[in-house]
Amino acid sequence: TFYNFIMGFQNDNTPFGILAEHVSEDKAFPRLEERHQVIRAYVMSNYTDHQLIETTNRAISLYMANL
């Protein structure tokens, strides 16, 4: 899942690491979701930090390219 992918960046001092920290603390994050459209919609609806949203979009693109 995307959640498992992004958790691989925990403790990294990178934008993906920052995203992983936010996702791990977000109890409502769709952890079992595999459809990138649902993940993107969730982030757009629940996150207000523009940098975090952009990082999510980049992470989703990388995740999709590696499926």
Rank of each mutant, 00 (worst) to 15 (best):
N13A: 09
T48Y: 08
F5V: 00
L52Y: 04
F2G: 00
E25N: 15
K27T: 11
A41I: 09
S61V: 14
M44R: 07
S61G: 10
N13Y: 06
T1R: 06
E33Y: 03
M44F: 08
Y42V: 04
F16I: 04
L19K: 00
T1Q: 03
Q10E: 08
A20N: 01
H22Y: 14
Y63H: 08
T56R: 02
N66A: 15
A59P: 01
Y3E: 00
A59F: 04
P30R: 03
F29G: 03
E34T: 15
I18L: 13
F16E: 02
T55V: 10
L32K: 10
I18N: 08
N4K: 11
A20H: 03
E54Y: 07
Q10H: 12
H22R: 11
E54M: 10
F2V: 03
T55G: 03
G8R: 11
N66Y: 15
E33A: 08
P30K: 02
H50M: 13
F29Y: 04
G17H: 05
F29R: 13
I18H: 10
I39R: 00
L67C: 12
F16C: 06
D49S: 08
A65S: 11
Y47H: 02
E54S: 08
D12M: 13
H22P: 02
V43E: 00
V43A: 06
M7C: 05
M44E: 14
N46Y: 08
L67T: 12
F16L: 11
I53N: 03
M64D: 04
F9M: 05
L19R: 01
R40H: 10
L52F: 05
H36L: 15
A41H: 11
E25H: 15
L67R: 09
P15I: 08
S45A: 15
A28H: 14
T56C: 14
N13P: 12
A28C: 13
M64L: 15
R31Q: 07
L19E: 02
F9P: 01
Y63D: 00
F9D: 00
E33C: 06
A20Y: 06
I18P: 02
K27N: 10
L52T: 03
P30A: 03
T55E: 05
K27Y: 08
F9I: 03
I6K: 00
P15Q: 10
P15K: 07
R58P: 03
E34N: 14
A59S: 04
V38H: 07
D12Q: 14
F29M: 04
A65D: 10
A65G: 09
A20G: 02
M64F: 08
Y42G: 00
P30V: 07
T14L: 03
L52K: 02
D49E: 07
T55L: 12
F29W: 05
A28F: 14
F29N: 04
R40C: 12
P30F: 08
V23L: 11
A28Y: 14
T48Q: 11
R40M: 15
S61C: 14
G17E: 03
I18Y: 10
D49N: 09
I6V: 07
T56E: 03
E34I: 15
N46R: 07
I53F: 05
N4T: 12
M64P: 01
F5P: 00
I39M: 03
V23K: 03
T14P: 02
I60T: 02
S61K: 13
I53R: 09
F9V: 02
P30D: 04
N11T: 07
N13S: 09
F16Q: 02
I18K: 14
P15G: 07
G8M: 13
F2C: 04
K27F: 08
H50Y: 12
Q37G: 09
E54D: 10
Q10P: 04
E21P: 03
S45C: 10
E25D: 09
E21I: 14
H22Q: 07
S45P: 01
N46C: 07
T56F: 15
N4H: 11
Q51L: 14
T48F: 10
Y63E: 00
I39F: 05
E25V: 11
H50E: 14
P30S: 03
D26Q: 06
V23Q: 03
S24F: 13
L52E: 01
R58C: 10
R35V: 05
N66E: 13
R35K: 11
I60P: 00
T48I: 09
A28R: 11
N66F: 15
T56Y: 13
E54W: 06
A59N: 02
T14M: 03
D26G: 03
Q51G: 11
N11A: 07
K27S: 11
D12Y: 10
R35P: 04
T55C: 06
H22T: 10
I60W: 06
T1L: 06
N46P: 03
T1I: 05
A41T: 09
T1P: 08
N46V: 08
L52N: 02
V38T: 07
Y63P: 00
P15C: 11
L67H: 12
